[in-house]
Computed example of a mutant assay.
Amino acid sequence: MRTESTGYIVAVCLRRGHHFSKTPSLSIRLLAGLGVEGDGHMGALVQHRYDRRRDPARPNLRQVHLIPSELFDELRAEGFTIQPGDLGENVTTSGIDLAALPTGTRLHLGTQAVIELTGLREPCVLMDRFQEGLKAATEDRDANGRAVYKAGVMAIVVSDGEVAAGDAIETVLPEGRQRPLEPV
């Protein structure tokens, strides 16, 4: 693996139970194989309500949700009112193009925690319930007509650790053939 770039954490959020938005916190604790301690999406097996109904035995590839703060700037310029946690993310980042990273990229958050990117968050209808037009604002098409999702990325926790706003993020790309992130 090779280190690629460094960014930082803008905000951290969690919320017990299944809700669209999460509450900003001073810090969060990441637990290997489980996710964010105390968060409604924590667990080794799938916690997303729709996915759990379809196959409750699937591994949870959505333990941690990350969104770049640069997306919030873009959405604000389009007239949306968005703050950290509003779109359900656990970690708001700055300085890293999360969606451009390959599957398997490891992010070292703070001094101990390590997460591994598993895929993209596909925008859903709940986004429009939060603010009308938000789902379309987080979807796009590339030059080849393929869907581009800008609603953040999902990850699993590899190593425990507490993380907080201001902590550095070190990006480590996987070795070998790299696969682009797909929706999970």
Score class of each variant (00 low, 15 high):
E78V: 02
A143C: 02
V184C: 12
D160V: 06
E139H: 14
S159A: 05
L134P: 02
I115N: 03
S94L: 11
A147C: 00
F80H: 14
I67M: 04
L101M: 12
E89V: 02
G176K: 02
S27T: 10
L120Q: 10
A113Q: 06
L14Y: 01
L71A: 02
Q83F: 10
L75S: 07
Q63V: 14
I9W: 06
E78W: 05
C124W: 04
S27V: 02
K22D: 02
A32E: 04
A100K: 08
S159M: 07
G40W: 00
T103L: 15
E78Y: 13
A99W: 11
P59Y: 11
G33K: 08
P56R: 13
L66W: 03
E70T: 01
L120H: 15
G133S: 12
P56I: 12
I115A: 06
F80P: 05
D97M: 13
A100D: 11
R179I: 06
L75K: 00
R179T: 06
R54A: 14
P84Q: 10
R58N: 15
S94V: 14
I67W: 03
G33L: 13
E122G: 08
Q63T: 07
D128I: 13
A100H: 08
G7Q: 01
D86W: 00
A168Y: 12
T23W: 01
T6F: 13
M1S: 14
E4Y: 03
Q178H: 04
T138P: 09
G38D: 14
G110K: 15
R141M: 13
A155W: 04
T111N: 13
A143N: 02
L98Y: 03
T93D: 03
D167I: 02
P24R: 09
R53G: 00
L109S: 14
